[in-house]
């Protein structure tokens, strides 16, 4: 009994590290989405901007996340004169990374909306921007929901790479604990289990949301039913 009690502080220490994973994943996800929607809107109205956006996104998607982290922390931040903050650098790098992927997800789901519906909205006398907002955006966000939550779950897992910059996340703490207490595999598995639990909860929530938002009678709604 006392042996378990000795272990509790270690587990609490690792558990507290999860906050960093959550902060990195959630803030990068939301910031990445905002920038992705904005750059998609800009791409639609300006072909040269679209080319630039596509090129940057391709480059970011092709680089290993660890390299992106290193480049942000040791190259971009000093070059911009920003303070050398590991957490901030981590959030920035992952924002860039998830922006590039979310851009692809949103682009594909927007392309899947019937072109005729956009034309119908325009023929009613709606402006192009409003038509995109009222007709294309709600439908493409619905279609993109599962892919976006996958992206969030990947981010949560990738956020453990923050330990390379010295962020004390769940995995980094598991490493420290294993140095102090031995049994390294146990602690690393424990950290993995914690991250898995959060990721599982997020995907459960995504399913719930998808079911709630599915348009009755649509193909999407029928697919959701298959998953139950």
């Amino acid at each position: 009994m006392s042996y378990v009690q000795d272990l509790l502080p270690y587990i609490a220490l690792i558990f507290a590290g999860l906050q960093y994973n959550l902060v990195i994943a959630v803030s990068a996800f939301l910031a990445g989405m905002a920038v992705a929607v904005a750059s998609l809107a800009i791409s639609l109205s300006s072909p040269p901007a679209a080319k630039l956006v596509a090129a940057v996104s391709r480059a970011v998607r092709g680089v290993p996340p660890l390299v992106l982290l290193a480049a942000t922390y040791w190259l971009i931040f000093p070059a911009l004169g920003l303070p050398s903050d590991a957490l901030l650098a981590c959030i920035t790098a992952f924002t860039l990374r998830t922006w590039a992927f979310q851009l692809q997800i949103l682009r594909a789901s927007a392309a899947a909306v019937e072109k005729g519906q956009l034309e119908a909205a325009l023929s009613l006398g709606l402006g192009e921007r409003e038509a995109a907002f009222y007709v294309v955006l709600p439908q493409s966000l619905r279609a993109a929901l599962p892919a976006l939550f996958n992206e969030l779950s990947s981010l949560l897992k990738e956020s453990t790479l923050g330990l390379a910059l010295g962020v004390l996340d769940a995995l980094a703490r598991a490493r420290l604990v294993s140095i102090a207490a031995g049994y390294s595999l146990v602690w690393i598995l424990a950290a993995g289990l914690l991250v898995y639990a959060v990721s599982w909860a997020a995907l459960r929530f995504s399913r719930l949301l998808h079911r709630r938002l599915a348009v009755p009678g649509s193909l999407g709604a029928r697919v959701v039913e298959l998953w139950r």
Binding site: E114, G116, L122, S123, L124, G125, G127, Q139, R142, V215
Partner: peptide, 20 residues
């Protein structure tokens, strides 16, 4: 043109209702 489109309605071959 937007004001003209409000006055001249168009019904397409496919209904193209907003599916959401």
């Amino acid at each position: 043109a937007k004001l003209v489109r409000q006055r001249v309605a168009l019904v397409f071959q496919e209904s193209y209702l907003f599916s959401h």
